[in-house]
Each structure stands twice: as C-alpha cells, then as structure tokens.
Design a protein around this nucleic acid. Sequence first.
DNA 1: AGTATACAAGAACATCTGTGCGGTGTCAAG
DNA 2: CTTGACACCGCACAGATGTTCTTGTATACT
Lengths: 232, 232
Amino acid sequence: MKLSERQKKMLAFIAEFVQGNNYPPTIRQIGAACGISSTSVVKYNLTKLERDELIKRDKEVSRGLSLDWARLQEVGLAEDLAGAPVTDAGAGNDGSSFNFFQVPVLGYIAAGEPIQVETTDHFSADEWLELNESLFRNPAELYALRVQGDSMIDASVLDGDIVILRHQERAENGEMVAAWIDNQNETTLKHFYLEGDQVRLRPANASYPEMFLPAADVSVKGKVVSVIRQLE
Amino acid sequence: MKLSERQKKMLAFIAEFVQGNNYPPTIRQIGAACGISSTSVVKYNLTKLERDELIKRDKEVSRGLSLDWARLQEVGLAEDLAGAPVTDAGAGNDGSSFNFFQVPVLGYIAAGEPIQVETTDHFSADEWLELNESLFRNPAELYALRVQGDSMIDASVLDGDIVILRHQERAENGEMVAAWIDNQNETTLKHFYLEGDQVRLRPANASYPEMFLPAADVSVKGKVVSVIRQLE
DNA sequence: AGTATACAAGAACATCTGTGCGGTGTCAAG
DNA sequence: CTTGACACCGCACAGATGTTCTTGTATACT
C-alpha cells in the first residue's frame, strides 16, 4: 500500500479539520483544502483510503467519515497526523473555553524488541485520555501510546504503561522518544542519541542491546513528556 | 438555566451518536431518536441548548454541531449523559464514556523518610488533576499526592511523580499504600504487609530500611492506583 | 499499435439536511 | 375574554453534499 502525496494531504486535512471542528469535513471541503477541483476526484481518493482501511466511510451520509487511528498507527502515519499543526483556514475557531482536552491513544509501542505495531483486538480506535491542560502546553501536539515490553524499565517505564508524547521530529540527546525505523517498519521507544551521522537508540535495560542506525533510517515521531501507570 | 426532559434526551442522544459514529447526527436523526416529528422543533431546542452554551453549532452546516463537555461538566450534566442509552433509534452503543472528573492533589508524601501530610481538606488542594473516568472506578474516592524521595524507586515510582490513591482503610499484602503512622503523625508511601499483629512497611529501595510497627499504630490512608510522571 | 490501469476533471443528478413560516394547543397575566 | 409567550407540528424550499457519468491524460505491459 502506497499513498500519494495528495492522499496524505487529505488525511492530514481530515485529522486537522476534525480536531478543530469536532465533525468531519465534506468532500468539497477536502477538495478545496487539498487543491482538488473535482468532487469525484476526492471521492476517488477517499475510496482508495477506505480500501486501505485508513478511514471509515458511511455511504450517502454527509460528513460520514472518520479516521481509523488504529490502522494509521499501523502504517506509521498516526504520529504525523496527530500532531498536525492547525494552519489552514476554514478549520475551526473553537471557543477554547476547554480547560481539558483529549489525547488520542494510538496503540502500542515496543519497548523491547522492535515489533510490528499490532493494533488488533486490544485497541479500540477511539480511546482517549482526558488530561488537565495546566500540565501540558500545546495539547494539540500530544498523543499517547501503550508501552509493550520492558526495555525501558530502568527509566521506570514499565510494560503496560501509557506514555504521552509530544509530536516532534527532532530530539535532544538522551531524551526518550518514539523512533520510527525506516527499513524495518517499526516504531520503538528508546533513548535517543545523534552521533555524527549515526543514531544510537539506547534501551533502559541492560539485557537489551543498543541499536546503531544511519540517521537517515531513523525518524523521531515524538518525545515522551509523561508516563501514566494503572495499578489496578 | 433549566433543561426540559426533551432537551436532556437530545443531549444524551447526541453524545451517544457521536460516540458510536465519530460524527454528529442530523436534525432529523435527533428528532427520530427523541420522538420529535418536526425538524423545526429539534432546531428550536437546539437553539436553546446553544444559547446555554451546552452545544456549539455551525449554521447551515450539516451535522455542524458539537457538545461542549466543559460546560456540561460545569452544570453537572456530563455524568448523566455518559451512559444514558436513548431507547428509540439505536446508534452504536459503546461502554466508554466521555466522563471526567477532578482529583485533588493534596500535597506531598514521603517515599523516603515519612513526612506529615494532610489528606482531608479537599478544598485547600493546591492543584487538581483532570482524569478520564474510563480509567478509574469510583472517582470520588480518589486523591493524589506528589512523591517526595526515592524510596519507591525500585517500584518505578520516582521522586516528583504524582501517585493517585483510592481512599481505603484496608490493603492486601504487597500493595503500595499511603500509610499513616499514629505516634509519628506521618504519612509514608510503602508496600504494605500485615503480619500477625505487626505491620511491615517495605520501601522499594535497598538503601532504606523496612519499618515494623504494631498494627494499631498504622492506618492505611489509601492504595496507589496510578502513577503519573511529567518529564518536561 | 492495442489494451489495461491509475489518476484527474467537470457537469448532471439525486438526496440529504438545515431553515423559515404558518398554524395549533396550553397557560398564565392583564 | 384577550393577549402573548412558550412548546410544538407540518411542510415547502433552498442550499449543502455524496454519487455517477463522460471525457481526458498519462504509464505500463503485450
């Protein structure tokens, strides 16, 4: 499955629009935002996206579409979309009288061996955390992942914890990040170090090896800003 | 501000519909679900709700409405809307709710040497956490404390973490609790073990000693149900 | 060349959907 | 009794919106 630039743009716009308006855009709005003059072309691409199960659509229903965050996470797109900056016009002004906000829980991330992100049964597409705004800045850039594995145990991040990440492409050395490894199609949770043109991904567990990769093969998907653990 | 039964039903239906579909219902769908035959009546009541700022509406936009959960919470309606199924037209039901609540952060608790803490005065709480109800049951019993010290570090609870506790007098052996030590007027965070008529309070850090006390001198103030850490 | 496939445009079409307006019944105030 | 606000109903209508049909342009493969 390969997405065209246009389709990615559509996904980004939908994500952004929904976040700003609390309801999805119309075909024509998508077209306008993505520079597509014809409604049929939008539908054409929407159908593609639906075939890939990246979105869900209710036929003949106005604004009857929603993103499938589980799948998006699976193909490594969710992180980009979740932190999408709200730039475009038309997207909403919400009164922002909210003093709390929602953070999408996108799925699982490997803290042990990098694993294919599986978004099978455990994860319901719309799981959200509600957080107090005072604790975070720029909540729109946040998303959450459930930790799978124990490789970050020495950093006091345990299997099953929820990590909250801020979407960003760059990280300082030593920060805990979600890193996407290109040729392995995997996202993993590690300490990040840029050393020349190499990236070192360090687990916080002596029984796991460090990973050394060409910087070009690693993209930072976000930085961990919070850890939440449920004990009961 | 007083809402009619019909308006409450409409709110409940909207909440439920959005939960199940990820997009809002149309005026006609609301009407059908709430036993309103006329679209204008729906609009009539919708306008009322918007005047009270319980919902937000974009005029001339299909499905252009959204609930203002902040306000709903404010007027104490959020709880009612959470699980209330609307009998008529079934939208997807979904156990999860949008309910959230506040947990008072009461102060500091010692994870090293015991220090004094006040656990009764909710109103002087210097800070509140906003949490999603889906994560917890019986939120009224919850409160939070900031951890001071590193004696629980082996349990992955660090200095500065916030622990959320459920208020309860009893604990199972091994659970992490906030324990009040009578003759010292102190509360401390420890693993709890009842051994005969003695209580053993075990830190999760080899450099701190266990405490052995008469059961009569120790009262459990609550059990840790969650740990939250801010990294930035 | 011939054919199949992916992508795109534009216009016509069929619904969907919010709005507006006239009308009904109730109820309390004048 | 009359008046007026309030809650409600039906219905017509315009504008919003998804779908479909036809046409055109590339590209890859036979």
